[in-house]
Simulated scan of single mutants.
Amino acid sequence: MRQPIELPPLSLLPPSPLRALVETLHGLYQQADKPPLRAIDEWIVAHPEHDGAISRESIRRLLVGINVPRRWESARSVFLALCALAGANPDEHARTFRRQWQEVVADPMAARRPYSTP
């Protein structure tokens, strides 16, 4: 049985712009009943108009705050997929998500954290 992706503890991902971005995505992920990466990927593939190709591994790495896509379209596709799967209106969260993404990618060190396990 697959394990859902959990929000990293504060010890691994302390308060920061990266954590805020990951928390926003996790709110949607939880609203969508923690779908498998396959479901997120399938939604993205079914909506090529967003030009947001991203691998399942990159989706996972984004959800655990290991790194953030440098391409807005890729990050936006994950966001839109989670909104759709959660039945959430993306317009309600889009401005916040875009601002958070911009804050993270503006600082190359903030867009990545070293991978470690609890």
Rank of each mutant, 00 (worst) to 15 (best):
K34S: 14
F97Y: 10
V78W: 14
R71I: 02
R95Q: 10
N89E: 03
S11H: 05
A111F: 09
Q100T: 03
L13N: 03
M109F: 13
R2G: 07
R61S: 05
A75E: 10
G65F: 00
P108E: 01
R98S: 00
W43H: 14
Y115Q: 13
I44M: 02
V78F: 14
V22N: 02
L80I: 10
R61Y: 04
Q102E: 12
E92L: 05
D41G: 15
I40C: 12
P90D: 03
P114E: 09
E23W: 06
P15M: 00
Q3E: 15
P15W: 11
P4N: 12
V104D: 03
E6Q: 15
L80T: 07
T96E: 06
D41F: 15
I59E: 05
A81R: 03
P114Y: 06
A106Q: 14
F79A: 10
A86H: 05
F97M: 05
I44P: 08
P17Q: 08
E103N: 13
L62W: 04
G65T: 01
I40L: 11
R95C: 04
S77V: 08
A81I: 04
K34W: 03
P9T: 01
F79Y: 12
C83W: 02
S58H: 11
A84Y: 06
L21D: 10
S16E: 00
R56E: 07
A81T: 09
P108G: 06
I44R: 08
G87K: 01
S77G: 13
L85E: 04
A111S: 15
Y115V: 09
R61A: 05
E23I: 03
V22S: 04
P48T: 02
E57W: 09
E6G: 10
A110S: 10
G52I: 07
P48G: 06
S116Y: 08
H47M: 02
R19A: 04
P8I: 01
P4K: 12
P48N: 07
D33Q: 15
H93E: 11
L80A: 00
A94Q: 15
R99G: 06
E42N: 08
G27R: 12
P14G: 04
G52S: 08
R70I: 08
R76S: 14
Q31K: 09
L63A: 01
W72R: 11
V105S: 10
A20H: 00
A46D: 15
V64D: 04
L28F: 07
P108D: 06
I66Q: 15
